[in-house]
Design a protein around this nucleic acid. Structure first.
Lengths: 227, 227
DNA sequence: TTCATAGTTCGATCGTAATCGAAGCATCGT
DNA sequence: ACGATGCTTCGATTACGATCGAACTATGAA
């Protein structure tokens, strides 16, 4: 009633279980249709449509028409970061929406966080890049790619200039809910995950945020980012 | 329905306007009684009591009995950090619960963030400490006080050993919703704010998170932490 | 054109949670 | 011991929002 940002609005958007499930599904990074999201949330298409309209009005998701499909996705990196931070808190309270199953270890090992790699592997990658002085911690918030780091990612086949052109930050941190430490987000984080998948080192699990590394891919990854 | 932490529960706790107002009030750092919190939220004591029970069950606040009063406070630094991050997102969407008034500039300049200093002054302080190499950015997440920094804070009259003894981190970052950059949290952040107030440099505004520096206090602060 | 698929909008129903009055405990002061 | 203050619990009311069936719109396929 007095001052400061209105967190109630955002909280209430996330606070509905159906919407929370949809948002969590969108954390997988792929744009999904209302029908798919309705399935994720266990509700009918009509209800999902109404929820999506609210999420869009709140600025959490955006929509892209393509033929007779509509693809919904998180509207910005920001949204993913905020959700991950909420998940971190929920996890620290032991609030999970599932009984820990066989998929859980896979999720903790490597998963998609909106558009970049998270979990043990994600954290290890950032730690390793920092240890090798390929990424520098520039300030309290900022990460910067060093010259060595730039040479390294270009050797891997990533077009650094293209990354830099976009308005989005190239490197940024994202707090990992399972590891409780940061991993690498930003356009570089996105490009790296894409690289691993393009190289055939890793594949996304269907219907899950888990990322499954092949034996060869895992070996290459661990060599590339030693502890 | 599938995997991952349950953000809906936390979201719904924050999602009610009355609870959001109470939480925002508790971001002021002082423990408040149900009566005071009811006033902040514009509801009766009975309703406030029921809300506080829910917040406590969800682990967001804790309660301390003292005579016939009960003092409620955020349960951990973690909670404050999470709320500040939500506020950052809400603010970036232009979602505020007030029409920008005369108090707003004061809030942006210096305010209490749970138990430490935030706003322009808070950000400046951390930037200055880092520039002077009194605080080092140790990793992606960690801040560390250097020897020079330790000498500095001890010269100011802060008992560093006492800070270190507690289980809480001494230095940590907290994302500032108005500046969109980090400021210093942790037990050192708390001790520094306390110091400024004890020295008479600054005073909390009543019924607000704003911190008002005296002319002398402001001069001293700006000299102590040059840009 | 006609049918099928994808999605939105409308309207009605239903549940849940916020709210407050009243009553019940506990603690303090006298 | 007694009244006053601070807070919780109980119960009843109310309001809002989630849900889904049905009707409507749009795109694509045959």
């Amino acid at each position: 009633m007095k001052e400061g940002p209105d967190i109630a609005l955002i909280g209430s958007l996330i606070g509905d279980p159906a919407r929370a499930n949809m948002l969590t599904a969108l954390m997988g990074g792929q744009a999904l249709t209302p029908t798919e999201l309705a399935g994720e949330a266990g509700i009918t298409l009509q209800t999902a449509s109404s929820h999506l309209a609210k999420l869009e009005a709140g600025g959490l998701v955006t929509q892209r028409k393509q033929g007779r499909h509509r693809y919904y996705a998180l509207s910005e990196d920001e949204v993913g970061l905020m959700l991950e931070s909420l998940m971190g808190f929920a996890a620290s309270r032991g609030l999970t929406r599932h009984r820990p199953g066989p998929k859980d270890p896979a999720l903790r090992k490597a998963r998609v966080c909106y558009n970049h790699l998270a979990g043990d592997f994600g954290v290890r990658m950032l730690d390793s890049l920092i240890a090798a002085r390929e990424i520098e911690v520039a300030g309290a918030d900022d990460l910067a790619l060093t010259d060595a780091g730039r040479a390294r990612v270009e050797a891997l086949g990533i077009d650094y200039d293209a990354l830099k052109k976009s308005r989005r930050p190239v490197c940024r941190t994202c707090l990992d809910w399972s590891e409780r430490r940061s991993h690498l987000a930003g356009s570089l984080g996105e490009a790296l995950l894409k690289l691993f998948i393009d190289k055939g080192w890793a594949k996304r699990e269907k219907d899950s945020r888990a990322v499954r590394f092949t034996a060869i891919g895992e070996k290459a990854f661990l060599e590339l980012f030693p502890r």
